[in-house]
Simulated scan of single mutants.
Amino acid sequence: MNAEPVRLQKVLAQAGIASRRHSETLIAQGRVEVDGEIVIQMGIRVDPATAVIRVDGKRLPPASANAYVVLNKPLGVVSAMSDPRGRPTLAAYVESRAERLFHVGRLDADTEGLLLLTNDGEFAHRMAHPSYEIAKVYVAEVDGRVQNKTATRLRTGVDLDDGPIAADAFKITQVHDDRSLVRLTIHEGRNRIVRRMLAEVGHPVRRLSRVAIGDVRLGSLKPGDLRDLSADELGGLLDSVGL
């Protein structure tokens, strides 16, 4: 059931874009788009739950009761709300939230970093679906000295038991006597895919962290802490998965 139509400048103001008066200026300047059309007339009403609104090209997330959260998952925590083996789970980190959250995809217990949680089932389904090719960025500490030719090989692609895989981007950031630090971007979500591709080229992972999904960055969020997605972050992800 659609919400009652609301004046566009009110929607912008409620989203924190600008005051109602300044929102009217944005509209008059042709900087606001609704459902693919630039709007310049005042008084237009929209359904805040379904209208696709952009300001200066940036998507404004629709009004929603759903929650979209970033967690910096600590090392050793299982990507589940319960575990029959008694291992630490995500439940301890979301118990203060009123919503019943579930994780979008997963990280292995021995992988730390950015994990999305939500109560929006369709969003979670699309984010996990391989057809949308959402980029994920990892930082890995690996055994050995990674060479430029190895980086080229990973960008070109390696063959694993369940099919080929290539890094969208790969950068060697540090090299020491017996270890290297690398940064790689992939858009696939196969089980332990980063660890397997690095092991395939002779550099087993010592430590692995996911630092970004799409335009969402882990930043300075501490292990075990969580925050809500910003409007820009959520808008970008909704665009990426066609919502």
Results as ranks from 00 to 15, higher is better:
residue 66 N to D: 13
residue 141 E to Y: 10
residue 193 I to R: 02
residue 187 H to A: 08
residue 184 L to D: 07
residue 208 L to W: 05
residue 66 N to G: 02
residue 225 D to G: 13
residue 100 R to V: 02
residue 76 G to T: 11
residue 149 K to V: 11
residue 57 G to C: 07
residue 188 E to W: 13
residue 238 L to Q: 09
residue 75 L to Y: 06
residue 125 H to P: 01
residue 103 H to M: 09
residue 183 R to P: 06
residue 186 I to T: 03
residue 162 D to M: 07
residue 84 P to L: 04
residue 203 H to W: 04
residue 30 G to N: 14
residue 151 A to I: 10
residue 123 F to C: 04
residue 131 S to L: 10
residue 157 G to M: 04
residue 24 E to Y: 11
residue 16 G to H: 07
residue 199 A to L: 13
residue 173 T to I: 13
residue 198 L to R: 01
residue 74 P to R: 10
residue 44 I to F: 10
residue 228 D to M: 06
residue 85 R to W: 14
residue 34 V to R: 07
residue 194 V to W: 04
residue 100 R to T: 02
residue 31 R to M: 08
residue 209 S to M: 11
residue 44 I to N: 02
residue 98 A to V: 02
residue 12 L to F: 12
residue 30 G to F: 14
residue 209 S to Q: 14
residue 119 N to V: 03
residue 100 R to W: 03
residue 86 G to R: 01
residue 98 A to R: 15
residue 206 R to Q: 14
residue 232 D to N: 13
residue 163 G to E: 09
residue 169 A to D: 12
residue 36 G to K: 07
residue 164 P to G: 04
residue 40 I to D: 06
residue 56 D to P: 12
residue 198 L to G: 08
residue 162 D to W: 06
residue 32 V to S: 06
residue 222 K to I: 06
residue 241 V to K: 14
residue 179 R to V: 05
residue 68 Y to S: 02
residue 234 L to Q: 10
residue 214 G to H: 03
residue 117 L to Y: 02
residue 163 G to H: 07
residue 142 V to F: 04
residue 29 Q to M: 11
residue 36 G to P: 05
residue 128 A to P: 02
residue 88 P to T: 05
residue 202 G to Y: 08
residue 231 A to P: 08
residue 16 G to I: 12
residue 153 R to G: 13
residue 159 D to M: 11
residue 174 Q to S: 12
residue 169 A to F: 00
residue 94 V to L: 08
residue 87 R to T: 11
residue 216 V to M: 09
residue 213 I to M: 15
residue 153 R to E: 06
residue 155 R to Y: 11
residue 171 K to M: 08
residue 64 S to M: 06
residue 109 A to M: 10
residue 233 E to G: 13
residue 117 L to E: 00
residue 100 R to P: 04
residue 178 D to S: 08
residue 216 V to C: 03
residue 91 A to S: 09
residue 216 V to N: 00
residue 194 V to I: 15
residue 42 M to H: 15
residue 228 D to E: 15
residue 172 I to N: 05
residue 54 R to Q: 15
residue 142 V to K: 04
residue 81 M to P: 01
residue 83 D to V: 01
residue 87 R to Q: 09
residue 164 P to Q: 04
residue 10 K to D: 09
residue 100 R to N: 02
residue 97 R to E: 07
residue 238 L to K: 07
residue 199 A to F: 06
residue 218 L to W: 09
